[in-house]
């Protein structure tokens, strides 16, 4: 069973009196463990697609299934629950909660899930912090961390609940190339080790280089869906 399946998905917006067809006839599926990048110029529909897949919005037409569950008919509360239980998000500008420490930021999604004990939460957070190499800094607040450290915290937060899929919107856009490369390398490594499915929206050639599948959008339609070997860190 695919992790994600989109059939004839369309999304139309109204901007004042003008109707904008952001996506039309989108069909594709994502399998478990894919490291997939959605590329395309500005206005091609990347962010809209990511929003639909991330349960932040619903399609005007078509069907989106996440782990076999139909999303297009879900209520707002059900969509919030799906985001809480099934999805991890990584944003361009990190979007950490500024008043919480790195540790607390990572623990936050687990606390929302409510079925874990404090000890389990602590163990899982400590483990993921070790994996993203932030143990030394985990009791600092975001303002006391560098951009790269903040994005690693965001990655830990996305992965700590072992989601069905991690959605990353331009995750390297605010980082210099060294930090961007390090972050991509980390996500690649986690994808390989844990088999977590990653779906990126990007214009960054480096991200595309890492992707083992590149879906290109133009004017709201898929123009190319290329499967590749992807980049193995250190092999370039």
């Amino acid at each position: 069973m695919p992790v994600l399946e989109l059939k004839d998905v369309a999304k139309e917006y109204r901007q004042g009196r003008v109707r904008v067809q952001a996506l039309r006839g989108i069909n594709f599926r994502v399998d478990q463990g894919e490291f997939l990048s959605i590329a395309g110029p500005s206005g091609s529909g990347k962010t809209t697609l990511l929003n639909l897949v991330g349960c932040l919005d619903v399609p005007t037409e078509g069907s989106i299934r996440l782990e076999g569950r139909e999303l297009s008919q879900q209520t707002k509360t059900q969509l919030a629950e799906t985001r809480r239980e099934k999805l991890g998000f990584i944003f361009q500008s990190y979007n950490l909660i500024p008043v919480l420490t790195a540790f607390e930021n990572v623990a936050f999604p687990l606390e929302l899930m409510r079925h874990l004990s404090r000890r389990e939460i602590r163990e899982r957070v400590e483990q993921i912090m070790e994996e993203v190499d932030l143990v030394e800094h985990m009791h600092r607040r975001p303002s006391e961390l560098s951009g790269g450290q903040q994005q690693r915290t965001a990655i830990a937060r996305a992965l700590v609940k072992e989601p069905a899929m991690v959605l990353a919107d331009e995750p390297t856009a605010n980082l210099d190339s060294d930090n961007g490369g390090a972050i991509l390398s980390l996500m690649w490594q986690l994808n390989q080790e844990k088999g977590t499915t990653f779906l990126f929206s990007t214009h960054d050639p480096m991200v595309m280089e890492y992707a083992c599948r590149l879906v290109t959008l133009r004017d709201g339609q898929i123009t190319e869906d290329e499967r590749r070997n992807g980049h193995v860190p250190g092999s370039a």
Partner: peptide
């Protein structure tokens, strides 16, 4: 605003 969006993305209900 953005923080609210992020919290919603993390799964916080209205």
């Amino acid at each position: 605003i953005r923080e609210i969006g992020m919290l919603a993305a993390l799964g916080l209900s209205g």
